[in-house]
Design a protein around this nucleic acid. Structure first.
Lengths: 213, 213
DNA sequence: ATGTCAATCAGTAAAATTGTTGATTTTTAT
DNA sequence: ATAAAAATCAACAATTTTACTGATTGACAT
């Protein structure tokens, strides 16, 4: 079994060295570079061909999340493990959307880091239970919000669904068997309740907050 | 510390009994019911007030996923741990969308089951690395499309971004320092390339296919 | 050099959307 | 019984969006 080629990006010198020694000390892994910023990240990937990258988020210059996007666009086969102190939802999502395959907090123990690298390389996605919960909430949260936050009536929900189908007033009137005036009235109520002022804004809000299925 | 009240739904008699003994044997937990189907699931939750439910998917009558939806709608505070042989993507997503907070495979070891229950109760979301990977792929997959599928020009992308910000022609004209006529021309090109016929449709397509960040 | 193409800009008229006011009927809550 | 909320309809003015026509620029191949 060939050792897993691992690169590290971490701007804290002490931590970067600790990680480097940790990886070098493992029989299953091989360190192929450790950098304090992502300035030459694409070049490095081309030259050193890592299979796994340990990536800090907060670094001078290019952030770890930006770097993740860049790397995955060109080297989709490289698995990127985010290694950070941030545990707020937006950072987690940004990182995962950028293409990271794992998310580890810096408070993790050495053995956990090594296990995570191996798991990542084997096609798994290591993350702590708390991070996983945040990710899962993404799926179930909309359902809870969906309910009553804006207290749209049944009919208004019907109309809103038509709106996110891209229908015009006329089409909605036909589909719902009402006059365009009534459509206008309902849509006005929707705007008022959603605090928006145009069809597009209503559609955007409905889609982003998953008000409709 | 009070023991964690756990219920079990599993139609295989042998397995259900094993799980029951496993939970009863743990000092941190208390078994409050084990059933072979979900016929009386709501009633049971009301009477026995479990904090965690171990839920099989494939059962006669109501499926574990349907039961999960029903339970979460009324008892959102109950944490549900799916326990199944299925590892296909659709089942995983259905379960998570229904509100499950963890997903365990039946090949798991006893100690992992107990750990998962504790982690779930502490606000984590236990799942295997493979399951986590499936979940994460949900986030990064759409990004690949993002590129050039519709060959929008740079300027057209600018305008499209304005559109999904909910801006009117006038606002776009101001922001981009062009006349509203020009905005109109660009938007026409966008419609042609995206095969749509209105602002809303363009916004919907841009959001659903993640054409903009 | 010349023609083609894509991207950019603009003006006008037609069509769709939005604001506003006002009214009737049905359902729901008190 | 009465009040409040929801759904329906109408009409007019104001604004926004869309269609259509035409022009300029720069890149690029012939």
């Amino acid at each position: 079994m060939n050792p897993i080629r691992v690169s590290v990006y971490e701007d804290n010198d002490t931590l970067r060295e600790s990680l480097s020694y940790l990886i070098m000390g493992s029989e299953d892994m091989e360190l192929c570079g450790a950098w304090s910023d992502c300035a030459k990240v694409m070049e490095n990937c081309t030259l050193f061909k890592p299979r796994v990258i340990l990536m800090d988020i907060d670094m001078p210059g290019i952030s770890g999340i930006e770097a993740t996007s860049m790397i995955k666009a060109v080297f989709p086969e490289i698995n990127i493990l985010i290694f950070t102190v941030f545990e707020d939802e937006s950072k987690v999502f940004d990182a995962l959307c950028a293409g990271a395959s794992g998310y580890l907090l810096k408070k993790s123990k050495s053995i956990q880091i090594l296990e995570a690298i191996v798991e990542l390389h084997n096609g798994g996605s290591p993350m702590t239970g708390e991070i996983a919960r945040k990710v899962l909430e993404f799926f179930s949260r909309p359902t809870s919000k969906k309910k009553n936050e804006y207290t749209l009536s049944d009919r208004e929900m019907d109309i809103l669904k038509c709106l996110v189908n891209g229908e015009s007033y006329k089409k909605i009137a036909e589909n719902c068997f009402i006059s365009t005036s009534t459509v206008c009235t309902h849509i006005n109520s929707i705007y008022r309740k959603l605090h928006v002022n145009s069809k597009s804004e209503a559609v955007i809000k409905a889609l982003k907050e998953r008000l409709v299925g």
